[in-house]
Amino acid sequence: MLEVRGATRRFGNLVALQDATLSVDEGEFVTIVGASGCGKTTLLRLIAGLDQDYTGEITLRGQRIVGTSLERGIVFQEPRLLPWLTLWDNIAIALDNAPLSTAAKKDAITAQIALVGLTGFEKAYPAALSGGMAQRAAIARALVGHPSILLLDEPLGALDAITRMRLQEELLRIWRHERVSMILVTHDVEEAVFLSQKIVVMDSSPGHVTANIALDLPFPRDRSSAEFGAFKRQIFDALHDNAAVKPPEIEYLI
């Protein structure tokens, strides 16, 4: 459904992303794993259409991606809720330009708030929400317009371990409920193994894709099972190999 072919992004002389290729099937959960600076957020921004200055090709259902679109929902690293809007309005803003009747919008928002478990907080301002609640609201905002693919840019990175685990389960539930394709960017290997059907491993200097690993474990996955551990090992190895074959780097300060 989503195809990235040979995507390259340069910032001046720096190659942030080189020749990235990946594909996402209809309804598939794909995770991009890699250390900071490996170009995974750059790649996601290209897919989102927030950055259009690249070479290569990115197509969604055969259509080349031009600019942002409500077809591609995005959740950022931080919730990015507008502090002057209530939770309800923060989600409703995603439907401002949707061709729906007022009643249909209302139903969609109500259902989405219920799906992320925030019913009862509709009138709260973002300042009154916890980090986990705010990120749930951000997920609801990205999903309310029923995009065909949801892009998640380390959405759980800033949360504590317990909230993160809970939200991973939520994300899994939402994904199975909505049957929407998802691309998750993360540096948390366990999160990747817990959620994805396919893991794309990336490495830096320049940012590129080093491995594509398919995970055929059934959902929900048991974090303490042997198979789970084996996949974690495989991902760690893929990340580690990259580090091992690299020649020693000269470090310099800019």
Partner: peptide, 9 residues
């Protein structure tokens, strides 16, 4: 950037 992603006019 958020406004862009949400396609606000």
């Amino acid at each position: 950037e958020l406004a862009q992603a949400l396609k606000l006019s």
